[in-house]
């Protein structure tokens, strides 16, 4: 989790909510007004400034013509499915902790988190939920630190479940709160587009560096889940993208394949090898392949109109 991006996304979500009512026709009209106005600077300036005041936010969020309804509906379903699984798997994880079964809890930790990591942009758009569930030591005031990583430290570093019940129960209730909130979260096309890149940026800034799961070394689970979450969004937007820019669509698809193949080479026992096992040049290659994917992915905004 990343406090700064969390704030940014919260702000973005707020913008989306306010901008949500400006529909695409407003945007198209103002663009037409600008391009068909007579050949003088003042006319263009006035057309432009009037559109600035009325629909500038819309130009950043609403698509000119493409229909994203199907993609958004499917994405909401995906988010709900993942959050259901998160609540279920976190429940089992919490049970193991509360019964003092450290080995069992360690086994359940990384797979449970993956459901969260796949839909992180949505969680980050929902205010305090992300820090409560996913803050790392140092991300928040020590007195407020709880969630997955607090328990990770107890399991791997303190090697004890003493005093963890409070954190475990809070984590479960926080995931349940998330589940309730995703039902109503407003998903705009731009949240999809930026969310996919945001997921990869999460990988770049904390997973690649090995800072995310510093006690358990299960960073590759999170890495893979973030990539899967981004790929899901790409899959949903693929028809729109193929229509608008087939070359870009192919490039993104190919880059996902390259990165997935590389991740698969670190798969082990239904999960992934410890991040400690990776050599420096292997980390570098993962990082560079991630950048190679994220760059064309960041061009998906072309779907929203240029």
């Amino acid at each position: 989790m990343n406090i700064r991006s969390s704030l940014a996304l919260s702000a973005l979500a707020a913008t989306l909510l306010t901008a949500g009512c400006s529909n695409s026709s407003t945007d198209t009209n103002s663009a037409n007004a600008a391009s068909t106005s007579s050949n003088t600077g003042t006319a263009a300036a006035s057309a432009s400034s009037s559109s600035d005041s009325s629909s500038a936010p819309a130009s950043a969020s609403a698509a000119a013509s493409a229909d994203f309804t199907a993609a958004i509906d499917s994405y909401r379903e995906y988010v709900i499915t993942e959050t259901d699984a998160l609540v279920k798997d976190t429940g089992a994880f919490v049970d193991a902790i509360n019964s003092g079964n450290i080995e069992e809890a360690k086994k359940l930790y990384a797979p449970a988190r993956m459901h969260y990591e796949r839909i992180e942009p949505i969680a980050e758009a929902l205010g305090d939920l992300d820090p409560n569930i996913d803050a790392r030591d140092g991300d928040v005031d020590p007195s407020e630190w709880r969630g997955f990583h607090r328990l990770e430290k107890a399991l791997w570093e303190d090697k004890s479940t003493d005093g963890t019940k409070e954190y475990a129960d809070r984590l479960l209730s926080d995931t349940k709160l998330l589940r309730a909130k995703v039902e109503t979260v407003d998903i705009e096309p731009s949240l999809l587009v930026t969310g996919a890149v945001e997921l990869l940026n999460e990988v770049s800034t904390s997973k690649v560096t090995g800072e995310e799961d510093r006690y358990s070394r299960t960073d590759l689970y999170d890495f893979a889940a973030n990539v899967e979450g981004a790929e899901k969004i790409y899959e949903l937007l693929k028809p729109n993208l193929a229509d608008k820019d087939p070359e870009l669509e192919k490039k993104i698809g190919d880059s996902f394949t390259v990165l997935q193949n590389e991740l698969n080479s670190y798969a082990k026992d239904g999960g992934y090898v410890s991040y400690d096992v990776l050599k420096e040049d292997e980390v570098r290659k993962l990082s560079q392949n991630l950048d190679a994917l994220a760059e064309p992915l960041s061009q998906m905004g072309t779907l929203l109109g240029v």
Binding site: S35, S37, A45
Partner: peptide, 19 residues
């Protein structure tokens, strides 16, 4: 002079450039 957004106005840009 007028903000980059003006460029998107296309038709009017000529006058702007002349200026």
């Amino acid at each position: 002079i007028g903000g980059l957004g003006l460029l998107l106005g296309g038709g009017a840009a000529g006058a702007l450039f002349k200026g």
